[in-house]
Amino acid sequence: MAEEVKLFGALESPFSCRVVIALKMKGVQYEYIEEDLPHKSPLLLKYNPVHKKIPVLLHNGKPICESLVILEYIDETWKGTPIFPQDPSDRATARFWAQFLEQKCLPTLWKACCWKGEGQEKAKEEAYELMKMLDNELEGKRFFGGDTIGLVDIVGNFIGFWYGIVQEITGVELWTKEKFPRLCEWIDEFVKCTIVKENLPPREKLLAYFRTRLRGAAASK
């Protein structure tokens, strides 16, 4: 019996892109279902009734939700290029940095770019400190996991690609090569990886999406 693998995602989502990269790394054949996030499909709501969000991976009829959970599921289910380190200590360290990116860096960078006033300035200061930690973690390494991309690199895709687009629209520059040379080198290396480059969404479409989103956010204030 053939496996059934489906991915519910959205072009503009770095969370969906994480799962796409992981599936491609493993060589898994899957059906991609694009969701219109303002008008979520009944199937998405059925398979993720708790959070009602993408991505959702459907494997032989069983849904797996939340991108970090999905990445771990993919790594445990399919052989091939590993996403998580094999050593338990290294695996725990990778989980730590993935959570750091997800829970600390992502919301802080969004505030630093898109908020206004005192809240934005505070977020910029915090973002600077967070980026300094990431820059230090990359000392002596090409990628966060070493010589090849792994969990932390995939989770950090929003820094590697999405942030540059938001930065272009907002004009907020949080890092330069002078301040964070290792992080900037990692960004260059990450987007040049074939498995990443071939599966990133078109830059022009993301620019249009975020321009519309940020204009809407400004109009609602």
Rank of each mutant, 00 (worst) to 15 (best):
P202Y: 05
G216A: 13
C65M: 08
R182K: 11
K111I: 06
G61V: 00
P38C: 07
P201L: 12
D87C: 08
G80R: 12
L214M: 13
I149S: 04
D36Y: 12
T170N: 13
L106V: 12
G119H: 11
K221L: 14
H39F: 09
P42G: 08
Q167K: 02
Y128P: 01
V152W: 01
I70F: 01
W78Y: 06
R182P: 13
A2W: 06
S16R: 03
H59I: 00
K205H: 13
S16H: 02
L214K: 11
L134G: 12
L134A: 12
A127H: 02
L37F: 09
C114N: 10
L45I: 12
E12Y: 10
P82L: 15
C184I: 14
E185F: 05
T81I: 05
R203L: 03
C17A: 07
T176Y: 03
K104Y: 12
S16A: 13
L138G: 02
E129D: 08
C105S: 08
D188P: 14
I83W: 05
D147S: 09
K79G: 15
N157L: 01
Q86K: 12
V69P: 03
G117N: 10
K62P: 01
I83F: 02
C17E: 09
F143C: 04
I165S: 10
I83N: 08
I195F: 13
T148G: 07
I154N: 02
I195D: 08
W78Q: 14
R211M: 14
D87H: 07
I154K: 00
L151K: 04
D147W: 03
P201S: 07
G150C: 05
A98E: 14
Q86W: 09
A219D: 15
F8T: 03
K205R: 11
K141C: 04
P55F: 04
S89A: 13
L58A: 01
G27T: 09
G164A: 11
K116F: 15
S41R: 06
F15C: 15
R203S: 08
M25R: 09
L151N: 02
E137Y: 05
K24D: 04
Q99R: 14
N199K: 01
F190P: 09
N136Y: 06
V56W: 00
E121N: 09
E137Q: 03
W186T: 00
K192W: 08
T212L: 09
G171C: 07
G156W: 14
N48E: 11
K197F: 10
E35V: 07
V191I: 14
K40C: 02
F100V: 06
P181R: 06
E31N: 13
S16K: 05
E4K: 08
N199L: 00
F190D: 13
A218F: 15
M25D: 12
C113R: 09
W186P: 00
E76D: 15
A10N: 06
E185M: 06
K26G: 09
I64H: 01
P38G: 07
I74F: 04
T81H: 14
I64F: 00
I195C: 04
F15M: 15
L23N: 10
G160S: 12
W110T: 07
A112K: 07
D36H: 10
E121I: 08
K124E: 14
K52F: 03
E118Y: 14
A208S: 09
C105L: 12
G145N: 05
Q29N: 10
E72I: 02
A2P: 14
E168L: 11
G140N: 03
V155A: 01
